[in-house]
Design a protein around this nucleic acid. Sequence first.
DNA 1: CGCAAGTTTGAGGGATCTCAAACAAAGTGG
DNA 2: CCACTTTGTTTGAGATCCCTCAAACTTGCG
Lengths: 243, 243
Amino acid sequence: MTTDCTDCPLRRLAVFDNATDTELDFIQRFKAGELQIEAGTTLMVEGERSAHLYTVLSGMGLRYKTLHDRRRQVINFVFPGDFIGIQSALGRDMTQSIEATTDMTLCVFPADRVWSLFKSHPSVAFNLTWVAATEEHFLSEILTAVGQRKATELIAWGVLRLWERGASLGLVENGAMPLPYRQRDAADALGISLVHFNKTMHKLTDQGLFEWRDDRLRVYEIDKLRELAMVCGGPLLDKRPLI
Amino acid sequence: MTTDCTDCPLRRLAVFDNATDTELDFIQRFKAGELQIEAGTTLMVEGERSAHLYTVLSGMGLRYKTLHDRRRQVINFVFPGDFIGIQSALGRDMTQSIEATTDMTLCVFPADRVWSLFKSHPSVAFNLTWVAATEEHFLSEILTAVGQRKATELIAWGVLRLWERGASLGLVENGAMPLPYRQRDAADALGISLVHFNKTMHKLTDQGLFEWRDDRLRVYEIDKLRELAMVCGGPLLDKRPLI
DNA sequence: CGCAAGTTTGAGGGATCTCAAACAAAGTGG
DNA sequence: CCACTTTGTTTGAGATCCCTCAAACTTGCG
């Protein structure tokens, strides 16, 4: 039994725009089905072309690129509500891999209908562009962090981002949110070595700023993290469209 | 006297898609005018909102973000044909600054007409999305480089990318292309210090792999650079739309 | 019990950073 | 035409951040 778009649990969240009935109706028809994958599955592989687009209904994963000698850059963590595969919608090969780190449920959309979407539903097309542009914006923020911050700041910054993302998605319960990743994933996301990540993270957790155990993250001293991370403003959680 | 879109010199380049007459006609009407700015001018400032979009007709510049303590990440170099400001088209503040490093000529488009563009010209809207998605793709490549490669590989990789970009735009003349930047810009783009950039670059130039002097880049040993940079395939120069 | 995956620790080396100063080229004003 | 400033490049040296290697430890599982 697949989820009905009109009844999508994600859509109730305050972070997501209210779609019009027309939009909702279209998205429902656009949706080809649902895909369930198990933790550990690779959803998309670098170099291949996917005929589908996905929206994450539930579960988490990660997006990464690899170099020839096994070095790996985690581009971003994949959370519920994320839209995956715009690249293939536009007729390009995927240049990154996507892997599930928990069981996931995904809404499936056929890539070959994207073009007609632009003709028939401009507002949805607009949202699609919005999502792509926002993605780009976040990537540039990550790049700035990886390029300029040093390990301590980086980790504080990363924890903060994950926490705020999780909070906006209602994933925080009893002061904790799920974070089903390994330290290796975090290190590869920040561009530092596993060992250095481990040691530097402990310098922060020993101060009681946060805790990451058993796949769950808890933040205790958010203000101190902000200070360490050198971010001024609070979280930037614009409303965004859900496709 | 402004350039007529039907007569745009960029559009003759092989990298750019052929636009249909309808598209061209629309873009011409969409274009509000041309902007000339001098080298050193800041076109867009972080935190502000721009009412315009731009396409670079000629000249070069750079896109960057700053931290509070003056650290700066150069996100990318701005070349002719680049489309600037999708963010503001979608009603967001700019989160990065853009600065001209040479005199530049830009085509100006009003941001508030973007929405109607989606309704009236879906193919142009599609191209817009394509550009945004491609931009994201390149950013993730840059992120991978900055996060995983070490200085020598990084520099080889960066030179290679600039060279291939320049070549696709027909900027290479007599074995040299314009590269009007400072070593500080390059260092900030790669996330390494100016001093380290200087020393590491000389290790490569001393081997005769390339040369960067007087704002011009020359590549002598492209295969060796490829090897150092750990890139396998040749240049990826898909055709792309010009807006 | 033994294996696999992940975390933690220690130690030494190398890459990169910062500080500082010298050097080069170009522009300015007297 | 010559100080003098400004901007950018180059070099040296010491400090530190970060990496790699290696091993111990921990946990879950067959």
